[in-house]
Design a protein around this nucleic acid. Sequence first.
DNA 1: CCCAATCAGCTAATCGTTTAAATTTTGGTT
DNA 2: AACCAAAATTTAAACGATTAGCTGATTGGG
Lengths: 351, 351
Amino acid sequence: MTIKDIAREAGVSTATVSYVINDSKNVMPEKRQRVLDVIAKTGYQPNRVAKSLRTKKTSIIGVLAEDILAFPTARIINGISEYMEQTDYHILLSDLRMMDSLFNRYDQIVHQKDKISEALSFLNFGAKVDAVIYVGMFDRDISGVITGVNKPIVVAYSTSGDEHACSVTYENEAISAQLANHVIDAGHKRIAVITGLAHTAPAQMRLKGIQAAIQEAGLSLDSALVKNGDWERASGYACMMELLEQERGVLPTAVLAMNDLMAIGAMDAIRGANLRVPEDISVVGFDNREVSDFVFPKLTTVEIDLKAIGFTAAQAVTQKLSGAGEYAEERSVIIPSKLILRDTVAQRSDT
Amino acid sequence: MTIKDIAREAGVSTATVSYVINDSKNVMPEKRQRVLDVIAKTGYQPNRVAKSLRTKKTSIIGVLAEDILAFPTARIINGISEYMEQTDYHILLSDLRMMDSLFNRYDQIVHQKDKISEALSFLNFGAKVDAVIYVGMFDRDISGVITGVNKPIVVAYSTSGDEHACSVTYENEAISAQLANHVIDAGHKRIAVITGLAHTAPAQMRLKGIQAAIQEAGLSLDSALVKNGDWERASGYACMMELLEQERGVLPTAVLAMNDLMAIGAMDAIRGANLRVPEDISVVGFDNREVSDFVFPKLTTVEIDLKAIGFTAAQAVTQKLSGAGEYAEERSVIIPSKLILRDTVAQRSDT
DNA sequence: CCCAATCAGCTAATCGTTTAAATTTTGGTT
DNA sequence: AACCAAAATTTAAACGATTAGCTGATTGGG
């Protein structure tokens, strides 16, 4: 079933059929109707492969994910998918599956940069996608990698370190300040922090937000109360143990963990020391993982609007393609995050 | 950069270049080398769109997911992706996002059947994928829907109710029996069951396994101890409350919930009644959700090998395409599940 | 009534591959 | 040196759309 069959059936040329399908040129109403009827009757769908060859556009967006099993990825893709549904674009998914070798040696990680480059090159030259959305967890410099990709690239969640790639990321600093304020407003004065990997951008931004809030409140952040974790649950436990052991006399009354996993690790440690959350020590996290609603007590945390990140990234990429729209020229957009207040912060009235 | 450029540069015809790329015909060694050199030098990659048009094969597998946010989906895609990496196939992802309207009225659900049909039709006629993998949660009869799709379809996780579609699903009954046996071996005699939605296939299979094990052990399943849940946490809580209230004297000593969410709901109820898990009542779940490692005590459960389901589905679909391999003709393959023994089952020595 | 402008519709070239069929080369036999 | 089958190579026709450019027909102003 090709355009030729439709043309013959409707008694017109293939050009005319093409014009009515794309309505790219005026066609007399009754002829148009005849064509439409034949199309409806036969259930004809134009062959996108042929169309792509001719127009050099595939209507396919490559989605290159660092790892689909990483917490944000599927949610971001959900957002992308929701936006795409109202367009003619479709998703070609490439999953780098980086978590498999995440904790490997440095040369492994370099090899992964090759992997990104290779995947991008395939999407660009091989699959001939119109644009790509890179769903990354780590802020990494992909500037070398995207050379030669003369198509729109937008990075979702993390940032790219390249000015040719637009990025859609999330509010980090301001919301961390808000979360810290929430704890301060509850009357806490001795506040500890368990950071993520200290050299990563999110860890630095969150720390900045926390520091700002503490300063603002006329308090100060005791550097002995800042412990470096690595985003994992076990490190939250370890950091909390240090905190518990180091100053028996002046325990912090609240600990701000930079993600939920570490917050839960910290809660384990607190419980292990026969103290109660939040009566003895308040705890907050970041991410709003589903577990944070399952632990006891339920964790107060921050929710990143991952779906909106995906939705907006998709919107941005299609607008860059059409050249029109609010994001068509944008370099960087930041999606607001929001506080999720649950049960791990207690009011504190001691001086 | 096209095959013509390569041909000119290497001083051969385009046909020869094509033959060395696909090595589909003998080419004299030194000529082949010349072509290879030019390809390497220029970084030429054949235009897959043109190739697809000519060969009527796209090397693209459509992955049609009921919802990428559903627990199994991303893990299954991870498996698909891992297998695909060693092939020349790529993934076109369509997400139906069914969870959004899952609890809506019946006509909504019918509308979703339209959605499946429409998506499948697009993949088939529009995107011209070579085959499709349907990643479904619900056993549904898609037999009407796949008519006219004359391409391999394999259903991953759920089953299709259609003999034209192969399905890769997981061990349900036997592992449920094994789990029940684990509880029985610990000395439990009064065993309660919290089922999933009673009309669904997994709920029925799991119940069958449990019944078999109980029978086998010379015990019997008291129908007053079988409560119908709906897979959600709240229903686990509600069922457990019923169990706790109904027979003060003869409480079950163990409850088998058909998934982790309901098991956790049951644990909430038990704790709420001032009883202890597992000392007073043992609990087991199914799925090995990540939360089951975070709750206290850690939940004993069953792990479905979702990655293997995806991997095998991908394998099956490519083998059906090539016509060779162990799954090329297979109708149905079942992936073994495994027990995850943690802390919610206690030894019981009372009669 | 004529001419130019506008409009509808058609013809045919084109996109970049693959591959059947035609052609040329190779090398072994006589 | 001539012949011939087999092997290597090339030519050119597809695949199914889009679209530039052409042809006639219609319209309307002078």
